[in-house]
Design a protein around this nucleic acid. Structure first.
Length: 951
DNA sequence: CATGTCACG
DNA sequence: GACGTACGTGACATGC
């Protein structure tokens, strides 16, 4: 790879890789791969690609001339002798990571690179010692790690100008003094002082209780050092902070010693031996073969230096529009500008065959279908566009014209003939079909008996990487036009521009072919480009696991559910509509009578004026729009205060809501072809990873009131079948108990106890209806990120009482408080939160100066890992469900609906017992083996002749 | 097109 | 010490 004479007089540059830290991060960010022997090697793979890349940078201007990998030898270090609890709360590494530790050392040796470890020393100390030694003799040093402790030694040597910086390969970010100062608010030499004040819960460094990163860096920045900060504490004005500083002095001083890096370790191997040179191929090859890293092997034999290198470490190259939105994301691959004039309109069989051959060769093609209307299940295919590379796209029309308005039907291939030729390509296992929201195309093509596979989806890719990442002016959606603008600064031709809008809109089949080709082929072209940009980001930014193992396999599953649809009893709904209408009319008369006049009851504006101005009820509050609030809480209060009209309005609202949103709308949603209702699920609708359901929304069908439940009775099975509903019991509370590691709650779930009763027992010492109800409210408050005012509002007490309850709760379940603190701190530091499966949700407003915005983000951030983990789990269950049922011979069971913690099936009556077993097992075990949950995931199942009866 | 309200987990 | 009263959604009606 390099020649020895890389000039002796040029600067030497030592790279020190923090091997131990890297393997943990690789483990959590990569899918659980196994080698041919069945040993888990996901983390090893990530590590191998990283080393390769580093070694390959040898010839780069700023690349390494010397390189060594440093490991922790054992868990015991000199710090344990000072402080026995040091790192005492570290959980043991995950089961499938353990066997990878020795393999990481093998990988290092396979690269013929030095492996350094020393009994009693942590990797950090060795790294610091080597870094200092190299710097002292005038070498530049780059530490490959993101450990904040190491940031203490970043900087430039006073005399020889040699620098120490850091490189975070996961984020492709260089960390120099400026970045350290940005992170800690102090220069590197004061970082140790900040760390000593704030402590570290992972390493169990005490710090001072109640001081986090913000306060710590403020104190150090203002006073210039830890000692100075502690010394001036007695002079501070009376405050909690003052007390804590005085009381915590000992802890802080101990912490200062613990976070200090030992920079004068004996060096087990001299620096000169780290010289990086041509890497012998044979041992590397043997290693790659042993573990089945075939893609890397191929690169090796290709003579291409490194594996695919989507990342560019040079920040100067980052100049595209995404730089702001995606800090640290790799730069765009070089691609020519979009040129719509390059697209081909395919009008002959000859040209179609040419394109199909080209697609087979390309192996990765973008596909987009154009239809006569928006509904995938009720519209006709009018054309398909394909792209094999940038500006290499075509449109194949076969349903244009044919309308009286266009007297000349353009020359086109016959649809049946075209699809006959395209089917083998679209179903070819060796050709990846890339789509933007490909679920839509799957559903369209399924109607023509084409079952597209394998697939990738740029919308889902964007979601896996950037959920929640929208910022003012940039937008957080995952639609194609938005993505093209954000990442490529390219404005796509819009559907509106091509088809018009409103009453003048025309169907796509009526668009002239030249225009249609520009629009349709551009969509495929842009999709192809987006894939080229987004897919390589997955392994770098930690999206692979969730995308490959959860969301991508879910796409065809959800598509199938949408195609199944669910039967509704139209007569039953019509009957309910009539009843609701009649009752509404009666209520309206009563309301007018009480009001003394007629008005639009459905208008909050008019209603507010009637209630508070005309009738003179007290306590009307106007919002910022100048209107009175007339929501549920307000009307209930009025009702309690003796206003008969309030209850009538509430009843009126309930009935009109049920009628317009459900009984009327559902009848209208029945597909005339299938006689069933087909919802559309969005896989990117909710930032937390939940699905959402639209058109119609079948995730908010009433259940809480008796009158609303009648609507569920109208969801029915086909003759001879039943509906079966399976739901996770209290899944979010169970996950909270697990994630916050609360023994009492975990125990209660393990014993099958009533969790709210148990909470009441713990908090109030007795269980009755009242205490259980309060405990239930508090339990939910926890999931949503609590505030004393919010809780007070729900419990009907004052904020002080609520505050006491929160404190009691935290005292009883200290893990919860720690979870909340750790989560918010993590989000502040990293910008995102993560589920147990590694799904990220970004919170760009977490540091907002507007406390309203900021605290809103904090609450959402507390909730997101829990809600998101629950979403991951049910998604995994859905992916495995049909294979599990098929394996049990239950091929007539159909999965119809998902409602966040519930799945609804339709199946022959005779299959209920057997299917219940399989469904419950699949759902209960859905987290395994990727994640082990410490509490059982209980599933309740019911079945009956309607959705209502199945509960 | 924004706002208020209310259906669900 | 202020914020303004819990997390995540989608549909409908009103009114500008």
């Amino acid at each position: 790879m390099a020649e020895n004479e890389k000039a002796n007089d040029t600067k030497q540059h030592l790279y020190l890789v923090d091997g131990s830290a890297y393997i943990f991060r690789a483990y959590h960010r990569l899918p659980p791969l196994t080698n041919p022997e069945g040993t888990p090697v996901g983390a090893v793979y990530g590590y191998t690609t990283m080393l390769w890349k580093l070694a390959d940078d040898l010839d780069q201007a700023d690349g390494p001339t010397h390189l060594a990998v440093i490991f922790d030898k054992s868990s015991h270090s000199f710090r344990n002798d000072i402080y026995p609890d040091y790192k005492a709360h570290r959980p043991p590494p995950p089961e499938d990571l353990e066997p990878q530790f020795p393999l990481i050392r093998d990988a290092t040796r396979a690269f013929s690179l030095p492996c350094i470890e020393e009994e009693g020393l942590e990797a950090d100390d060795l790294i610091a010692s080597y870094a200092r030694a190299a710097q002292n003799q005038g070498w530049d040093v780059t530490i490959v790690s993101s450990d904040k402790d190491l940031m203490q030694i970043v900087g430039t040597h006073d005399e020889n100008g040699a620098s120490i910086d850091m490189l975070d390969t996961m984020k492709s970010a260089r960390i120099g003094p400026a970045e350290v100062e940005e992170k800690f608010g102090v220069p590197p030499h004061l970082v140790g002082d900040v760390l000593a004040l704030m402590g570290d819960s992972v390493d169990n460094i005490p710090g001072i209780y109640g001081i986090g990163p913000k306060t710590a860096s403020k104190l150090i920045a203002e006073n210039g050092s830890l000692t100075a900060a502690l010394d001036q504490a007695p002079d501070m004005k009376k405050s909690k902070l003052k007390e804590r500083l005085i009381e915590g002095r000992g802890d802080a001083e101990l912490s200062r010693v613990l976070v200090t890096l030992k920079e004068d370790c004996d060096l087990p191997q001299p620096l000169e031996e780290f010289k990086l040179d041509t890497i012998p191929v044979e041992p590397l090859k043997a290693f790659l073969e042993q573990h089945g890293f075939t893609s890397l092997l191929r690169r090796l034999s290709d003579g291409r230096g490194s594996p695919d290198r989507p990342t560019q470490l040079d920040p100067a190259k980052k100049q595209n529009a995404s730089a702001k939105a995606n800090e640290g994301a790799p730069s765009l691959p070089d691609m020519p500008k979009v040129d719509r004039k390059t697209y081909e309109c395919v009008q002959t069989l000859d040209r179609l065959e040419h394109w199909i051959a080209k697609c087979r060769k390309a192996r990765e093609i973008a596909v987009d279908t154009e239809t006569s209307a928006l509904d995938a299940l009720q519209s006709d295919l009018v054309g398909i566009s394909l792209a094999t590379g940038p500006n290499d796209a075509c449109y194949i029309p076969f349903g244009h014209g044919g309308n009286d308005l266009l007297s000349d039907k353009p020359e086109q291939i016959d649809r049946t003939e075209a699809l006959h030729l395209l089917k083998p390509l679209l179903e070819d296992e060796a050709v990846l079909k890339i789509g933007q929201n490909i679920k839509y195309d799957l559903n369209v093509l399924a109607r023509y008996d084409i079952h597209v596979a394998p697939i990738d989806d740029t919308m889902i890719l964007s979601f896996a990487l950037d959920a929640g990442r929208g910022e003012q002016g940039i937008g957080g959606g995952h639609g194609m036009d938005e993505l093209a603008l954000k990442h490529f600064d390219h404005a796509c031709l819009t559907f509106k521009e091509v088809c018009g809008a409103g009453r003048k809109a025309i169907a796509f089949g009526e668009v002239p072919l030249d225009k249609a080709t520009e629009y349709a082929a551009e969509d495929a072209d842009v999709t192809w480009r987006l894939h080229r940009y987004l897919k390589p980001r997955l392994p770098i930014e930690g999206g692979t696991r969730v995308y490959e193992r959860v969301d991508r396999p879910l796409i065809p599953v959800v598509a199938q559910m949408e195609r199944h649809g669910i039967k509704v009893d139209r007569e039953q709904l019509a009957k309910l509509s009539e009843e609701f209408a009649a009752q509404t009319e009666l209520l309206e008369k009563e309301i007018f009578e009480l009001a003394g006049q007629e008005f639009t009851v459905g208008s909050p504006k008019q209603l507010g004026e009637i209630l508070f101005d005309k009738l003179g009820y007290q306590g009307g509050k106007k919002g910022k729009s100048g209107q009175y609030a007339t929501g549920l809480a307000v009307l209930e209060r009025l009702s309690d205060e003796g206003a008969p009209i309030a209850n009538k309005v509430l009843e009126w609202r309930q009935l009109t809501k049920l009628k317009s949103t459900y009984t009327d709308a559902l009848q209208a949603a029945i597909n005339p072809e299938t006689g069933r209702v087909h919802t559309s699920y969005s896989l990117v609708g909710a930032q937390t990873g939940r699905l959402s359901s639209t058109d119609p929304n079948l995730q908010n069908i009433p259940i809480r009131t008796a009158i609303g439940r009648q609507i569920r009775e109208a969801f029915v099975p086909e003759e001879g079948n039943v509906l079966l509903a399976a739901d996770y019991s209290q899944i979010e509370l169970r996950l909270a108990a697990h994630m916050a590691d609360v023994d009492t709650l975990k125990q209660a779930f393990a014993n099958g106890e009533d969790i709210h009763a148990r909470t009441a027992q713990e908090m109030f010492g007795e269980v009755n209806r009242d205490t259980r109800g309060q405990a239930k409210t508090i339990n939910f408050a926890i999931l949503y990120g609590i505030s004393r005012w919010g809780l007070a509002g729900r419990l009907g007490t004052d904020a002080d009482t609520a505050q006491d309850m929160i404190e009691t709760y935290f005292k009883r379940f200290p893990g919860i408080q720690k979870y909340i603190m750790d989560t918010t701190e993590f989000v502040r530091e990293n910008g995102y939160s993560e589920t147990l499966f590694g799904r990220k949700t970004w919170f760009p407003r977490i540091k907002s100066k507007n406390p309203n915005e900021r605290q809103g983000s904090e609450r959402a951030a507390i909730n997101a890992p829990i809600q998101g983990t629950s979403a991951d789990i049910i998604k995994r269950a859905m992916v495995r469900m049909m294979p599990a049922l098929d394996a049990a011979g239950l091929s007539h069971v159909r999965m119809l609906l998902q409602v966040h913690d519930e799945l609804v099936f339709e199946l022959p009556e005779g299959d209920v017992a057997q299917a219940s077993e399989v469904i419950a097992q699949t759902m209960s075990n859905a987290a395994a083996p990727a994640v082990r949950i410490d509490v059982p995931l209980a599933v309740d199942i019911g079945s009956g002749k309607s959705w209502g009866a199945a509960h």
